[in-house]
Simulated assay, not measured.
Amino acid sequence: MAFYSFNNRFVAGLALTGFMLAAAGCQSSDNGVLNLGFGKKDTQAPPPPQDPKVLASQLRAYCPKVTLRDGTAYFSTYAKGSAKPRKKTDAAQDAAAAAQPAPDGTIVDPDRDPAKVIYQASITDVTRDCSNANGQLSMKIAVAGKVVPGPMFAPGTITMPIRVAVMHGTEVLYSQIHPYQIQVTDPSAATQFVFTDQNVVVPEPTAQDYQAFAGYDEGAPKAATDKRKGKRKQAAPATN
């Protein structure tokens, strides 16, 4: 009798469990109540929200960050060599001599010998200020740095080529190089300087995607000099 009663309860429990699983299966296949990913897609669900647009007030408050490109934070001036000009036939020998390695194995460029450094300048900080008016963005970009005397120090004026630029992708909106001069007289201490370009004007942006740069540009062309200075002016040939 005990065995018969146990079988009846066991069969009834199996029936109840099967009913619950069947009901759960119906629910998950009809409307995805269990959220297991097997339910039908709800075509009435609203689309996901799109990325919010930049408001006009945000654009007016937008001021592009100024960054330093690689290799533009330092600028050095070197003492000129006192060697006499060589003949053209010695050009190959000069090139071979310039390629000779130093005792530590490195090749020293004769035009950039650390032992001939007069000054070494570095940019330590950059900042900017912006204002909007008449569809234009006006910026003041400031560069702070210092000049350290080198082994060949001589009191005088150093001219540093500082370039300021604003880019929109690959488009150059503003680019200007400034031959900024600073007087250096103390050989025992660094000379601080602050340069500001107050004339940066670009079209007002339609998105926050402008890039501003500041740094030294040693590849900038040197100021043109009058080669005729100190020479007598030749008379023009006579004409009939």
Rank of each mutant, 00 (worst) to 15 (best):
D125G: 12
D113V: 07
A2I: 10
F38M: 08
K222T: 11
K53V: 09
N8R: 15
A235Y: 01
K88R: 08
Q100G: 00
Q58W: 02
A83D: 09
A45Q: 14
V202I: 03
Q50E: 14
V200Q: 01
A96S: 10
V117Y: 03
Y180L: 00
D186R: 06
P103G: 08
K222P: 10
V201I: 06
A23P: 03
Q27T: 13
P85G: 03
A45F: 06
K40Y: 01
A12S: 13
N35E: 13
A61T: 03
A79L: 06
T72H: 08
I107D: 01
T67S: 12
T67C: 00
D51N: 12
L21F: 14
D109G: 10
T170K: 09
D111L: 15
A91P: 05
G71Y: 02
L16M: 10
A212R: 01
V200S: 01
P237V: 04
T196S: 05
N199W: 03
N31V: 08
D129P: 04
Q234P: 06
A24Q: 09
L36A: 08
V143A: 01
V66N: 02
Q176K: 15
G135T: 10
K227C: 00
I123P: 15
Q44C: 02
V200W: 01
Q44A: 10
T196V: 15
A23F: 12
Q183Y: 03
D109A: 09
L173H: 06
K41H: 04
A154I: 12
V117H: 04
K227Y: 03
K41T: 14
A73T: 11
A12W: 08
K40E: 08
L21V: 14
L55I: 01
K87H: 02
T170R: 10
T239R: 11
M20N: 07
H168R: 13
